Computed example of a mutant assay.
Amino acid sequence: MISYCGEIHQKDHWKFHKDICKVISDIMKERGVSHLYENLCIIDPKKWKAKREETRQTVESRMSRPTILEEVEMFRYPRACFVCHEAKQENLRNCPGCSLASFCRDHPSSYLHDKNCATIKKSHEFETEIDPRSGLITKVVSKIVANTPTKIPRSIREFIDSSFKWNESLPACMQFYLAEYLTIPLSIFNAFEKLKNPSKTEESPSKMVVHLRGINRRYVFTNSWEALLHMMPNLNNLLVVITDQSDDMRMEATLCSKCTSKKKKLLMEGVGVHYLEYLKADSYR
């Protein structure tokens, strides 16, 4: 059900994975299979989706906690045949084109996948080649105009065109990538703008805590959140908490010189529990 790049990371993650691993192992022993989805061979998409959810709920009912995001995705996107969803691993091979789909011996290919394979491969290569640590986000955020436009942008593209001072054009592919990282903070800013523009008044908060549930960490732990510090002048302290993670972590972002001189802070926390549990925890903020 789950793979690791090596023994070191497997051991590091064991404290978070061991409870669900035991439950899954017990169920497989009871069923006499080597994989939870083995021998199902459900071709109908709706039935396959229902079976995955039923399996997740069965596992969750045997644990003392809800399944977190990464575990939910483990049940939703198992390595199984693209056509019949057979999950016996020794009978599967990865697509030689994109490596992101698998096929069994009885179904070596699929027209539905073949027509999209090149696009999937290109998207995957783009994701792996462009790293958020490359400095793109920091560069973009530093170029945000402090005084936001009077007209609320209707899209990410309009925001980029109206709120950034570019000396050179931004490639379309970079705009797509940038949108993934700016969508959540810009949505929050847009909500404030619609509330009679409190970001431009004394009513604008000096401190803010944002709770996010089930969001991929890669889209949260970036300096894209610094955009709020730029666009909301009164905001000095911003804490972003994301629950349903595989582990706990906390980091303070390195801000631009302007924010640093004003002693602004941007903190990001990953919480390894379900959001409902976090609401009851002593660490709730």
Rank of each mutant, 00 (worst) to 15 (best):
P153N: 06
T254R: 13
A179S: 10
K263P: 00
T138C: 07
P66C: 02
R285Y: 09
V241L: 06
I42V: 08
Y177W: 14
I120T: 07
R52Q: 12
L195N: 13
A179F: 00
S99E: 15
F103S: 06
M231P: 01
G214K: 03
I2N: 07
N116T: 07
H211D: 05
I215T: 11
E53L: 14
M249E: 10
C173K: 14
Y77R: 10
I130L: 13
Q175W: 04
S64N: 15
R76F: 06
R56E: 13
I8K: 10
R154N: 13
R56H: 10
Y284K: 12
P96N: 09
V240Y: 00
I156Y: 12
L36K: 02
S102F: 11
K46W: 01
I43D: 08
C95H: 03
K165Q: 10
D244T: 04
E54A: 12
Y181V: 00
S261P: 00
Y181S: 01
S155M: 02
H85N: 15
P149R: 12
E54Y: 05
I144S: 01
C84E: 05
I42D: 00
K88G: 09
S110P: 02
M231I: 11
K47A: 15
I152E: 08
L238D: 00
I2Q: 09
C104G: 05
Y275C: 12
V33Y: 03
W166P: 01
F159L: 08
E54I: 04
E269F: 14
C256K: 04
Q10A: 15
L136G: 00
G214L: 03
E168Q: 13
P132T: 01
E38R: 02
K258T: 08
M231Y: 06
S224W: 02
E73V: 09
E269V: 11
E129L: 06
Y275Q: 06
D282Q: 11
V220K: 01
V33Q: 02
K262L: 14
N236S: 09
H9V: 08
Y177C: 02
L178D: 03
R218A: 05
R52H: 05
F75N: 00
L229P: 05
P96M: 07
K122F: 08
P96Q: 09
L235I: 03
E269D: 13
N216R: 14
M63P: 04
L136T: 08
N91I: 06
K143V: 03
V240S: 00
A253K: 11
R213Q: 13
R217W: 08
T67R: 03
R218S: 08
C5T: 10
N234K: 14
F189Y: 09
T119G: 04
C98D: 04
C95T: 03
P66I: 01
L276M: 13
M74C: 11
Q245T: 04
T58G: 05
H274A: 11
H85I: 09
G270T: 03
K18F: 10
I20R: 03
I184T: 12
N147R: 14
L239Y: 05
